[in-house]
Write a protein that binds this DNA or RNA. Structure first.
Length: 749
DNA sequence: CACATCTATCTTTTT
DNA sequence: GATAGATGTG
């Protein structure tokens, strides 16, 4: 602790490590002793750009945290001069904690955040230069899509011919390449792209009027303001003399540009990443950023971390075997000092239900017989929809679990409503939030009246809230609507009066009561409404926590409500990952990045599912393979990969499952195959090229077939009913029973 | 204007 | 099998 404060109070050195004090030297030695040789090279790097190619599990967080501690301990940087960027808020919090543990004290002045949070924070200071107010609202994807639909309506674009989602994808893509509407228009020429350009132009106009930014805007506007204003540029460059970026392989062009703008003078940019784990290309992440780092920053030094501290050699060899097939990569081979470990278990099941049961049974076995904690077991799948069957099964097995991702807390209607109320208090121009809450609960302000309000706002250029304040002036507005809107306006105005002073939790509570929102829910008297009320209470709880933290840390410059809204707008699901209770964790492969578990199940390894058909169509085979690599390398000791011979997609169609190409790409001697037989799992030949296809799914039974039941003995099928139910009369006691053909322990004679 | 019912389409992955 | 949009009814 003494070393840390001594270093911090010294002046930042403009050169490499100076002569530390005796205590400092001791501290430094301890800091470096915990590292292997390439890790130490990275941590003790002097000034200038540095690329750390960190294979999975090679200790990249360790390198980052030690590097920061090193910068502080040597006096190369003061805490306020460091900007460290991570992928999720959770990763950021963890990194801050670990750095603080290393240097032995809290360091509030240091920025450790995500790209989006950092940008939001910078924009709070400078958005006014771009015509936004500092209290701009952050629109999530659903909000921004709503705005796009509105713009399309206004331009009379047929949403059947031009799906709003596709238009939004175009706009988002353009922004990520830092193209504004005009630049985009010049580069594209099809009818669709022309239309997208029109929508894009109007969208930008309406977003500015609404004082709102989408996720892409946060990055783009930050780049804009830094490019346009020399004083802003200078301010941030001076602030961030050392910039460190985690998961660099997932950065896009806008983020790259931002880093370039911030660091081009001093060149103190350290990026850590693994091109083999670049899995956000669909969101315009550019793997070229990491592949071409040494070209973009010619004086860059490169360090490769290949020793893995997480997994068994078998798991690493499996991962290497897969990723080797990619062309877009930098040669890198993971190795470990740990032993070989267990073979990779491959299992073919008849359908997704059997797959889920098999996974559940194996989880149970791992817990009961191998002594694993449930919290050390995870199941990964390609798409969120695949969690459903699994969840049903885990419930039946009474295995406590948590799902990360999927329908998120902050996407629930009631939560979005509550947040929209708060947004409207802060930002009266916010059209989308206005539209969301104006008639929720029902106030008799329907589509017609809302349309009139919006139209009047658009034609006069007045903020929607102004217009609502003078409804009488809106042409065509009926008397009842005028009254309802005026009342609504008064309610919100009264709440706004308190907004700047009151703690967020109390304000939210007042909002929910005084707008009649809670009353309406309570009046519903349904279980669903009760759940909603509970969710809202949880949100009040979140706000209370926020208030408490704020009181603890002292007030910032930003009003509490604004800060709260910004924080939850950029909150992600990973952030709430629970590690205390022993729960089996279910999530998509994308969510799995950066995590590790003793045992990992990768389900749905079928062509078309994983690799996903649409990804393949878009030429993303290599990215799918990287996704597989990410999944495999999450496992410490045990890895299971399963596929189903048949799977029901979107509630009906049966799809025939062919084992994923990734299964075939695994080195055969590392694997052990199992195939579902009607009753049991028999290990097949180890590493056999392909298990002989089993007699198909459930046995096909007809009336008159003779069957044997494990406990009831011989019987005859007397009926076949829909839903896989068969009726069997048993010879033993003459009883007739209904059985599930798929699940009952029966076989044909 | 609110609510119920029907339908088409959907599923990648998310800061 | 869920949801959003369209259509119909009171």
């Amino acid at each position: 602790m003494s070393a840390g404060s001594a270093a911090a109070s010294s002046e930042p050195a403009s050169h490499g490590p100076g002569a530390p004090t005796a205590a400092g030297a001791d501290h430094l030695e301890r800091l470096l002793a915990e590292l292997n040789s390439p890790q130490r090279d990275a941590v003790t790097h002097g000034e200038g750009p540095l690329l750390v190619l960190a294979g999975a599990g090679s200790g990249k967080t360790r390198v980052l945290t030690h590097r920061i501690a090193y910068l502080l301990a040597t006096g190369m940087a003061r805490p306020g001069e460091i900007l460290a960027i991570t992928f999720t808020n959770k990763a950021a919090a963890e990194m801050r904690e670990r750095v603080e543990a290393l240097i032995g004290r809290a360091i509030r002045a240091m920025w450790v955040t995500t790209f989006h949070s950092a940008c939001a924070r910078m924009l709070r200071a400078d958005a006014e230069r771009l015509g936004y107010s500092r209290s701009f609202t952050i629109y999530d994807e659903a909000d921004s899509l709503r705005m796009i639909k509105r713009c399309m309506e206004e331009l009379e674009v047929d949403p059947k011919r031009f799906p709003p989602r596709a238009v939004r994808a175009q706009i988002s893509g353009a922004k990520n390449r830092l193209l504004d509407a005009e630049a985009y228009r010049e580069m594209h020429g099809s009818v669709f792209e022309e239309t997208a350009a029109d929508v894009y132009a109007l969208y930008e106009k309406r977003m500015l009027e609404a004082n709102a930014m989408d996720f892409d805007d946060l990055l783009v506007r930050t780049v804009n303001v830094i490019e346009l204003y020399a004083e802003v540029r200078e301010r941030w460059r001076r602030s961030f003399r050392h910039v460190l970026v985690d998961e660099y392989q997932d950065t896009n062009r806008a983020q790259y540009r931002l880093l370039q703008l911030l660091t081009s003078e001093h060149g103190n940019l350290m990026v850590v990443g693994d091109e083999s784990q670049s899995i956000y290309g669909f969101r315009h992440a550019d793997i070229g950023n990491i592949l071409d780092f040494d070209r973009d920053f010619p004086e860059a030094e490169t360090v490769k971390l290949e020793q893995n501290y997480r997994s068994t050699q078998t798991i690493l060899s499996a991962a290497n075997g897969i990723i080797e097939r990619n062309r877009q990569r930098i040669e890198k081979r993971l190795w470990t000092a740990a032993g070989e470990g267990e073979q990779v278990q491959l299992c073919e099941l008849s359908d997704e239900h059997e797959e889920a049961r098999w996974v559940a049974a194996e989880v149970e076995r791992l817990v009961d017989e191998e002594g694993l904690s449930r919290s050390e077991i995870a199941v990964f799948y390609r798409t969120n929809a695949m969690s459903r069957v699994l969840e049903d099964t885990l419930v039946r097995f009474e295995l406590p679990y948590q799902v990360i991702g999927g329908t998120k807390f902050y996407e629930r209607a009631e939560i979005k409503d509550a947040v929209a109320y708060l947004s409207l208090l802060v930002n009266p121009s916010d059209q989308i939030s206005f539209a969301r809450v104006v008639n929720s609960p029902r106030r008799g302000i329907g589509a017609t009246s809302q349309g009139r309000l919006a139209a009047h706002a658009n034609t006069t250029g007045l903020p929607i809230w102004e217009v609502a304040g003078r409804v009488e002036e809106v042409p065509g507005m009926g008397a009842a609507a005028i009254k309802a809107i005026s009342r609504f306006h008064e309610t919100i105005e009264a709440l706004r009066d308190r907004a700047s002073r009151a703690p967020v939790a109390r304000l939210l509570d007042a909002v929910l009561h005084e707008t009649g929102y809670l009353d309406a829910l309570e009046a519903e008297r349904t279980i669903e409404a009760e759940g909603r009320i509970e969710n809202l209470q949880e949100l009040v709880g979140v706000a209370g926590e926020f208030d408490a933290n704020r009181a603890l840390e002292g007030e910032g410059e930003v009003p509490p409500l604004e800060e709260f809204l910004q924080q939850i707008a950029l909150f992600t699901e990973q952030d709430k990952l629970e590690r205390d209770e022993p729960l089996v964790t279910l999530m998509t492969l994308h969510n799995a990045k950066g995590l590790e578990y003793d045992a990992v199940f990768l389900i749905g390894c079928e062509e078309g599912v994983f690799p996903h058909m649409r990804a393949l169509e878009e030429g993303g085979e290599e990215e799918e393979r990287r996704l597989c690599y990410v999944g495999i390398t999450r496992a410490r000791r045990r890895l299971y990969m399963t596929w189903a011979r048949e799977r029901r997609m979107f509630g009906g169609r049966r799809e025939v499952g062919i084992p994923s190409r990734f299964i075939d790409e695994l080195p055969p001697d590392l694997t052990e195959r199992h195939t579902s037989a009607p009753a049991r799992w028999e290990p097949a030949l180890s590493g056999a090229a392909a298990a002989p296809p089993d007699p198909g799914p459930a046995l096909e039974l007809q009336t008159g077939d003779d069957v044997v039941h494990a406990s009831f003995g011989d019987g005859v099928v007397t009926g076949v009913e829909p839903g896989g139910v068969i009726v069997v009369r048993f010879a033993g006691d003459g009883s007739e029973r209904k059985l599930m053909a798929d699940y009952a322990p029966i076989r044909k004679r």
